[in-house]
């Protein structure tokens, strides 16, 4: 049962958010590791080698998640790791990233999800991303 053993890294500076995500994901037997910032995020990533990253875009109030995603893609080991980006950005500002589907270099993530994300939706997306990664 490889699916249930998938390891997911959550990078978010809000530990309440992390706790909620962890409870939901663990209910489906995912192994969850977390980091509260980009710096520890990189450490944990290399140490734990997760199968998927859930990333908060507006981390540290400055969109550090955006930078982190690009950083991850530069790492040879994690070039193909699925990244689910959580953001409140679009509904907040009405801003959507230009060509995010067409230009993976600009924002190299696999999925976008608006916060707050309901648990079913989260699990569906995580499963989808993992299945896609396995198929690749």
């Amino acid at each position: 049962m490889s699916e249930s053993k998938a390891k997911i890294l959550i990078v978010d500076d809000d530990d309440d958010q992390v706790a909620a995500l962890r409870v939901v994901l663990e209910s489906r037997q995912y192994r969850v590791v977390s980091a509260s910032g980009t710096k520890t995020g990189t450490e944990v990533l290399e140490r734990e080698a997760p199968d998927l990253i859930i990333l908060d875009m507006m981390m540290e109030g400055k969109g550090a998640g955006f930078l982190f995603s690009r950083q991850v893609r530069k790492m040879e080991r994690f070039k193909g790791i699925p990244i689910l980006m959580l953001t409140g950005m679009r509904s907040q500002t009405g801003f959507s990233f230009p060509g995010k589907d067409k230009d993976p270099q600009f924002l190299p993530v696999d999925e976008f999800a608006e916060k707050p994300l309901n648990p079913q939706d989260l699990l569906r997306r995580v499963e989808g991303l993992l299945a896609k990664a396995r198929a690749a």
């Binding site: 809000d14 309440d16 958010q17 706790a19 909620a20 995500l21 409870v23 939901v24 663990e26 209910s27 507006m58 409140g88 907040q92 916060k115 707050p116 994300l117 309901n118 648990p119 079913q120």
Partner: peptide, 20 residues
């Protein structure tokens, strides 16, 4: 919005019965 999102996530997790 950010804290509201966290609150919602926590409550969703509880209400959805995801807590072990």
């Amino acid at each position: 919005r950010a804290p509201l999102g966290s609150i919602a996530s926590c409550l969703h997790a509880v209400l959805g019965g995801y807590a072990a």
